[in-house]
Amino acid sequence: MIKVKYNVFTIGHSTHSIEKFIDLLHQHKITAVCDVRSIPYSQYTPQFNREPLQQELARRKITYVYLGKELGARSENPHCYRDGQVQFDQLAKEPLFLKGLNRLRKGMQRYRIALLCAEKDPLMCHRTILVCRNLRTKDIEIHHILEDGTLEHHAEAEKRLMALHKLEPDMFYSEQRCLEDAYDKQAQKIAYIDQEQKACK
């Protein structure tokens, strides 16, 4: 039996107040936040703009690391797009993305990390459908911090993902294939679309 070596968490800031957000981090003993937003700014939730968030986390003794360039849902490489939409399978092969995953793995050795993005439901966010899909290994335990503070194990999130797309394994359709197809369908549903690039097609 393989012993789990590391834990990693994900969290969506949603429309939380900064106080509520910090409470959620403290509740789960998070010591570092890795921001995987491609654009870490929002006019609707300015409390989570990169600079004020970094300052607030530092005040609470929580390390902030920006990994949106490495692990964000957008890409500067045109080969990662098809008809204007990011293709997660291509993005996951990019050297920069792989570098980001390695930074995460190294960080887990020192910190209790939460991957930060905006969406409250982990299934609606690339932090799960792109990053966690490619981060999951037998020695990494992944948990999603939900809006009410409860934890959803990644295996349970994957069951929800298959149910969301009404996919069920059977004798001809393995559970692993079913799961990968569910990931692919959700990626197509949520992946970033560059409207200008799409209009040029």
Rank of each mutant, 00 (worst) to 15 (best):
K29E: 12
K93G: 01
A58E: 14
L115G: 11
L71V: 02
E156F: 04
Q43E: 07
L98F: 08
D83F: 09
K120V: 09
T128W: 03
K69W: 07
A92H: 02
K159T: 15
R136K: 15
Q43V: 11
H143V: 06
E141Y: 04
E76C: 02
A58H: 13
P40Y: 08
L25Q: 07
K69R: 15
L104R: 11
N134H: 15
I62S: 09
T150S: 15
R82M: 06
R60G: 04
A114W: 10
C125W: 03
Q85A: 14
G84R: 06
T150P: 02
T128K: 09
A157E: 06
R103G: 00
Q43P: 05
V131I: 13
S38V: 07
E51V: 14
L71P: 03
L25I: 03
L115C: 08
E51L: 14
I39T: 12
G68Q: 04
Q27Y: 00
K138H: 13
K99M: 01
N102K: 14
Y41K: 14
N102S: 13
T150H: 15
R127W: 02
T137N: 09
G84D: 13
L151Y: 15
Y81A: 05
C80M: 08
P52A: 14
V65C: 00
H26D: 05
Y41C: 03
V86N: 12
Q109D: 01
L71D: 01
Q85E: 12
I39S: 13
F48H: 07
C117A: 13
R112W: 03
A157H: 13
S75D: 03
R133S: 06
A155M: 05
K120W: 06
D148L: 07
